[in-house]
Amino acid sequence: MIATLDVDIRPGHGLGLFELGSSLWNVLDLLRSLPHIFPQVDIKYDVDSSVITPVVLHIRPHLDLLFSGHHQRLHTICVRRLRDPHPPLIVHYKDTIMSSQEEVLRRLGVSRTFGPTYPGDDLHYPGVWFSFEEDRIGEGIKASGPGHTEDRMQEVKRIIVSQKGPEGDERDALEEVLECPIMHDDIARAIVKVHRGVTLYQHLPSAGPIQIQLGVTTAQDLTCDLGPPLRTHYKEDDRMSIHSTTRETEEEEEADYFYNYFQHGIDVLISGHTHVCKKIILHTNIPGTPLFQRYKRCLWQIEGQPEDDEDDTPPRMKFYDRFESINHFLSPREMPPSMVLDRTDDEENLILPNSTTRLMGYDGIILEVTESGHVVSVMLF
């Protein structure tokens, strides 16, 4: 027996399990935990500009979820194929069932539920609109005149839920999502200062900045500021130690360990001997790369030196800037040494457009860069 998908419309806020403003990482994690309800999910994006491309999750056959390109936040929800019985779909608003296998949603039913709205081919209300076109937006079905019986009985083909603009107007699909309560516990931006550490700023206005300082911040500090990590991983892969200038006799006996904050896109390597921060890794979560969806996107910015003591806007390079620009910012005179890394070596049947990356080493910072010039991660040490 096929389970029925029952969703409620919340204009300007969400639909069913999905809340506008949610991160791509959170939504994919939710879908992965419910394979019996959502057995097939397709991820669509522009391969040529994957770091800033909007991402669409197509959940067959009823849902399309559009995520913004920079912040990877749920921007728009589209419900389609309302009459497809695989699985059956029930759509309701408050206590009213608007669409089901027995109830066909028509123009008249929408007007009765939501009231009058401005004339047009589609029915637009703040935070939700109803289209009579199956796939395309904008052309609509030409009405033969006001009050015409066929017009009132037009069948709704799609329902679109999006945020309300400041004046209740519609928002462009390529705009970023307006700040909303579901973001409050997330990191709004991470300011990177080479040799020093990272300053994290949350969306919640009342929350102060969180400092993660190399050689200063302890495991206890991290737990107090960010909460317990989703995973603690003890460092077992020592292949990079061959490049270390530290003598073996000086190495610490206790194993170093990572605090993995997947929900913030951050890893912190902690000394097993002193329990103090040794390295910080920030992840960009680029579609088409091996680490996609393991971490939420961290909106990092690498800060340079201010021009003078009074300069309160020092130059910064951001996560979406190309490697060529960031390299000139960090090392304007020469190209740094690099090493090739293929994270799919152990995956025989995995083919990705950006499986091979290059580690570019600078004084105090390492960038992992794709073949297309996007920075997958930033490591401070």
Score class of each variant (00 low, 15 high):
D346N: 14
C298N: 14
V56Q: 02
V51S: 03
R158C: 15
F381D: 12
V56W: 02
L74S: 01
I160S: 10
I52T: 10
I137L: 14
P229V: 10
C180T: 13
L200T: 05
D363G: 06
D29V: 03
I52W: 00
P11I: 09
E303I: 06
T370A: 09
D121L: 10
I141A: 15
D363L: 07
S22K: 05
G361K: 13
H86D: 11
T218A: 10
L30Y: 11
V128N: 09
H36F: 06
G109M: 03
K235H: 13
Y295F: 05
L74I: 11
L65T: 07
Y259P: 02
K318F: 05
C78F: 09
T113L: 13
D186N: 08
F132D: 09
L31P: 01
G12V: 06
I326K: 04
Q154C: 04
D122S: 15
E176W: 10
D122N: 15
G12M: 09
Y362F: 12
D309I: 02
R106Y: 01
V276N: 04
P337E: 14
L200H: 05
L330R: 01
L341Y: 14
L34F: 07
L204H: 11
E252G: 14
V55S: 00
G288K: 13
G140E: 13
S50L: 08
C277R: 03
I326R: 04
D238S: 06
I191T: 01
P119Y: 13
E253Q: 08
H71A: 14
Q72P: 00
Y261Q: 07
V55D: 02
V340I: 14
L380D: 14
Q72T: 03
S325N: 05
E252C: 14
D311N: 02
A255F: 08
T199M: 09
K296R: 10
H374V: 10
V216A: 14
T313N: 07
L28A: 03
G361E: 14
L299N: 12
R80F: 07
L204Q: 11
D84Y: 02
H92P: 00
E368R: 12
I77L: 10
D8C: 07
S241Q: 11
F262N: 13
K318C: 11
F114P: 10
E175L: 13
E155S: 15
I52Q: 04
H36Q: 06
E236Y: 12
L30V: 06
T96F: 04
P181W: 00
Q293F: 04
R247D: 09
S206P: 06
I52R: 01
I37Y: 03
R189V: 10
L222K: 02
G109N: 05
H275S: 12
L105T: 03
G288S: 15
D363K: 14
E139H: 15
T344G: 05
R196N: 04
F292H: 14
Y93Q: 08
F381H: 08
I187A: 01
E155L: 08
E368N: 07
P205K: 03
V156G: 07
M183S: 06
I52H: 07
Q72H: 08
I286V: 14
V378I: 15
H75E: 00
Y93L: 12
G147P: 11
G272Q: 05
G14H: 04
Y118K: 15
S372G: 07
D346A: 12
L31E: 02
